[in-house]
């Protein structure tokens, strides 16, 4: 990196979201450097998905601002939505379209010219190893195939920042390798990838920058080496979120000869 610090790709300030009595995100503040492969880690229910939803304009925050390359997500949605791609977790796609139709539909919604959409769609289908299933309905796809077609849809308009919520959840190793390959290529070209996960080994092998979220707040952020220190990311993560030791007395009957 040259010069002073370049402006962050994503800048989140004092973000809050409450669902009834439960506070999902509590004053989260985070700057994500441009051109990095960023891992957002945290236990289940830490607020990762809520944060990503608010950062991408899908969920209105109670309070706080999100800037993507300087543009406010909630003041200037047109500028932001054109520059980001997302792969949410737990939301469906239009599954009664075939993989190819889904990409063609998505590209046209993005306002790309039809011929260009078709060309990019074919390339993405080929690279993501979906060409053989391109005419099957997404409803009949496996989990890995769904993630791959979702990734293709998120990449179609060549965004500056890519948000991925649990992109490897339930994905077989072969598909996971394909996804990793595409993501690495995309990040190497200078774009920013933000992905959430609770698989530390994965984050360690892919990311150069990590933010640890717990109970709706950032408890650590920085380069991978700064966050993990001389330990594994797994060990420092468990330390950061404060895990209880397993109770050895219970489950004494499990295993052993007494059935």
């Amino acid at each position: 990196m040259q010069g002073p610090t370049p402006p962050p790709a994503v800048s989140i300030r004092d973000l809050w979201k409450r669902f009834g009595a439960q506070t999902a995100v509590a004053g989260l503040t985070l700057d994500l450097p441009a051109g990095s492969f960023i891992g957002l880690v945290g236990p289940n229910g830490a607020g990762k998905t809520t944060t990503l939803s608010m950062a991408t304009g899908l969920l209105r925050p109670d309070h706080g601002t999100v800037l993507i390359h300087g543009a406010d997500v909630w003041q200037d949605p047109a500028a932001v939505k054109a520059r980001i791609g997302i792969l949410p977790e737990g939301l469906r796609m239009f599954e009664r379209l075939s993989g190819r139709e889904l990409l063609q539909y998505n590209g046209r919604l993005r306002g790309l010219p039809g011929a260009e959409v078709d060309r990019r769609a074919e390339e993405l289908l080929a690279v993501l190893d979906l060409a053989g299933s391109a005419d099957k309905l997404v409803a009949d796809y496996s989990t890995g195939m769904r993630k791959k077609i979702g990734l293709a849809a998120a990449l179609l308009h060549n965004p500056d920042v890519l948000f991925l919520d649990e992109p490897f959840e339930g994905v077989d190793p072969v598909s996971a390798q394909t996804i990793r390959g595409v993501l690495s290529r995309y990040a190497a070209a200078g774009s920013t990838v933000v992905f959430s996960s609770h698989v530390m080994e994965l984050v360690e092998s892919l990311c150069d920058w990590v933010a640890v979220v717990n109970a709706g707040q950032v408890v650590a952020q920085g380069t991978l080496d700064a966050v993990r220190g001389d330990r594994s990311l797994h060990a420092s993560f468990l330390d950061l979120v404060g895990v209880r030791e397993a109770d050895g007395a219970a489950l004494g009957w499990l295993g052993g000869a007494d059935r």
């Binding site: 304009g57 047109a78 919604l109």
Partner: peptide, 15 residues
């Protein structure tokens, strides 16, 4: 009727 798939529309609808 779109269900949660509406996010794909939401993601591209700004103006």
């Amino acid at each position: 009727m779109d269900g949660s798939a509406f996010w794909m529309v939401a993601q591209t609808l700004a103006t």
